[in-house]
């Protein structure tokens, strides 16, 4: 669980400590937010080095702006939004305006399941399963938590289009709410949901393949 937003009063305390110039409070946030800040910055600029530079600039922005933070969004959302704003501006200056489709994936309208899994038009049960999916509950309990399973999940997430990957990391790996993710990544409600659904569907499909292959060997 990510501890940057446990409760409103903890967050308020963190904000107060940051305003007072408390280094431990600052480092607490660095430990939790730095990796995702770099990933978000990296979506908009050409190199890892520039992304890291942007994150430094963003932290300075956080320190200078924390006095004006009103708590209308969570602290982590506000910080991530600062990063993405700086990164977008910098990307534009680099002459690198990144089209939404290249971040989000160009398949947003395509079905997430292979159409062959459903009966075609003209069949009596058109649109229903052609073969009923397997029941994962038949698997041993620890199978889902096994190291190999988790590495399939990790490697699938790592190969998703960057915005899909970030949405599923924030939502499902870190447990952020959809409102926080929408705010942090500047996504509409629909886009956030579509990106998350596509990401989950791909991870589910990868697990299905993993479990099926295993059952056959």
């Amino acid at each position: 669980m990510d501890a940057t937003s446990q409760t409103a009063s903890d967050e308020l305390e963190l904000v107060e400590r940051l305003r007072a110039g408390d280094e431990d409070a600052f480092m607490f946030l660095v430990d939790r937010l730095q990796p995702m800040m770099v990933r978000v910055a990296r979506m908009y600029v050409s190199s890892q080095a520039v992304a890291e530079e942007i994150v430094q600039e963003a932290w300075l922005g956080v320190l200078k702006g924390i006095g004006r933070f009103e708590g209308r969004s969570s602290l982590r959302t506000w910080i991530l939004r600062i990063v993405s704003n700086i990164a977008k501006t910098r990307g534009q200056r680099e002459g690198r305006s990144v089209p939404f489709a290249s971040l989000a994936g160009d398949d947003l309208d395509a079905p997430t399941f292979d159409p062959d899994r459903f009966l075609g038009p003209g069949e009596e049960w058109a649109g229903h399963w052609s073969t009923v999916p397997a029941d994962w509950r038949g698997m041993p309990e620890e199978r889902l938590a096994a190291t190999e399973t988790l590495s399939v999940v990790q490697s699938t997430i790592d190969t998703l289009p960057p915005m899909q990957a970030e949405v599923i990391r924030l939502r499902d790996v870190l447990g952020w709410t959809s409102a926080e993710v929408r705010n942090a990544l500047d996504l509409s409600e629909t886009n956030q949901r579509v990106l998350l659904h596509r990401a989950r569907a791909k991870v589910r499909a990868a697990l299905e393949l993993e479990f099926t292959v295993e059952a056959e060997t």
Partner: peptide
């Protein structure tokens, strides 16, 4: 149910 388990599996990853 598989989606629920997928979400749960993602939740076991670490940042």
């Amino acid at each position: 149910q598989q989606f629920r388990e997928t979400i749960e599996a993602s939740g076991r990853l670490s940042e």
